[in-house]
Simulated assay, not measured.
Amino acid sequence: MASSPPEPQKSPRQFSYKIILLGEVGVGKTSLFNRIRTGEFIEDYDCGTSYYDNMYYTTTVGDDEVNVMLWDMGKPQNFRECKPGYFYRNTDGVLFVFSVEDSYTFQNLQEWNEELVYRIDNLDSLERALIGNKCDLPCEIEEEQVKALSKELQVKQLHFVSAKTGENVMKTFNDLIAVIHHRRTKVPEGSNTDTPVTDIEKSSKCICC
């Protein structure tokens, strides 16, 4: 008796999301951007006269294929000359970045959040992560300050990373992607993928790495 032909494999569902990097000059947003894009630390990267830069990143969440466009702002003077609304438009996730060695960059995230609130219409569906970069350096930020700001910014994820060493960078990025995807598709957390860290208490206990 002839065996039945194998059933054709189903193609994975495909989804697309947009994530932006926000924070003060010098916190390492572009270094994080390049670490994700190239896997390397580029110390003297020159973005030229670009208003902003973007890249595509493809990963899987569960059985789904997820394509992410990550946006980084260019030089501050160039970014202010462009139409910032285009940068913020159709955003699904935000990485708020500060430098752990510079308390000003941490405090000024409130202003970036005000800008975000002004520019974004879909705030209720926006996923946000708070990123302390340069955790390979001495930390000037107190843990309680970080927790308080996380609450104010309505952040569900808190990570400390180093664009220079690569520590925790990809996990942070993939965690945010997974949270966005779970929310958009209602995929049960833990279905063929690691459950993202969303507990501020757990993720901040080893502050500054």
Rank of each mutant, 00 (worst) to 15 (best):
residue 45 Y to R: 13
residue 206 C to I: 02
residue 37 R to K: 09
residue 35 R to K: 04
residue 36 I to L: 13
residue 171 K to Y: 09
residue 94 V to C: 00
residue 44 D to I: 15
residue 81 E to Q: 00
residue 131 I to S: 02
residue 10 K to H: 11
residue 67 N to W: 12
residue 155 V to H: 00
residue 87 F to L: 03
residue 54 N to W: 00
residue 16 S to M: 01
residue 10 K to M: 04
residue 20 I to M: 07
residue 113 N to M: 12
residue 81 E to I: 00
residue 9 Q to V: 14
residue 74 G to A: 10
residue 200 I to G: 15
residue 177 I to D: 11
residue 118 Y to M: 06
residue 55 M to T: 07
residue 137 L to Y: 05
residue 144 E to L: 12
residue 137 L to D: 07
residue 101 E to T: 13
residue 127 E to D: 02
residue 156 K to V: 08
residue 115 E to T: 08
residue 103 S to P: 01
residue 66 V to Y: 15
residue 125 S to P: 00
residue 120 I to T: 08
residue 77 Q to E: 05
residue 87 F to W: 06
residue 75 K to V: 02
residue 33 F to M: 04
residue 37 R to T: 09
residue 57 Y to L: 11
residue 70 L to F: 10
residue 129 A to D: 06
residue 71 W to C: 11
residue 125 S to Y: 03
residue 194 D to V: 07
residue 14 Q to H: 10
residue 106 F to C: 09
residue 198 T to N: 10
residue 146 V to F: 03
residue 29 K to A: 03
residue 26 G to T: 02
residue 78 N to W: 08
residue 139 C to R: 02
residue 26 G to F: 00
residue 208 C to Q: 11
residue 79 F to P: 00
residue 77 Q to D: 01
residue 27 V to K: 08
residue 36 I to M: 04
residue 74 G to T: 08
residue 122 N to A: 10
residue 2 A to P: 14
residue 180 I to E: 09
residue 168 N to C: 15
residue 57 Y to S: 15
residue 153 L to F: 04
residue 194 D to N: 11
residue 175 D to A: 14
residue 78 N to P: 05
residue 167 E to H: 05
residue 95 L to A: 14
residue 155 V to F: 12
residue 38 T to Y: 06
residue 21 L to I: 08
residue 88 Y to K: 07
residue 168 N to S: 07
residue 162 S to V: 10
residue 12 P to E: 03
residue 42 I to G: 08
residue 136 D to T: 06
residue 164 K to I: 07
residue 206 C to Q: 14
residue 191 S to M: 13
residue 98 F to Y: 14
residue 157 Q to I: 14
residue 4 S to T: 04
residue 25 V to M: 05
residue 72 D to Y: 12
residue 165 T to V: 05
residue 4 S to V: 04
residue 79 F to W: 00
residue 126 L to Y: 01
residue 41 F to D: 14
residue 202 K to D: 14
residue 114 E to W: 12
residue 177 I to R: 09
residue 161 V to C: 13
residue 117 V to C: 08
residue 74 G to I: 06
residue 89 R to T: 12
residue 128 R to H: 07
residue 109 L to A: 06
residue 199 D to E: 01
residue 47 C to N: 11
residue 110 Q to C: 01
residue 104 Y to P: 01
residue 66 V to S: 03
residue 207 I to P: 14
residue 36 I to F: 04
residue 151 K to N: 09
residue 6 P to D: 13
residue 105 T to P: 10
residue 41 F to V: 05
residue 139 C to I: 14
residue 21 L to R: 02
residue 35 R to T: 07
residue 93 G to C: 13
residue 54 N to P: 00
residue 187 V to L: 05
residue 111 E to F: 14
residue 23 G to T: 06
residue 130 L to M: 04
residue 97 V to G: 08
residue 102 D to N: 12
residue 132 G to C: 11
residue 35 R to I: 12
residue 121 D to L: 10
residue 56 Y to M: 12
residue 185 T to Q: 03
residue 89 R to Q: 15
residue 64 D to I: 01
residue 64 D to G: 08
residue 24 E to I: 09
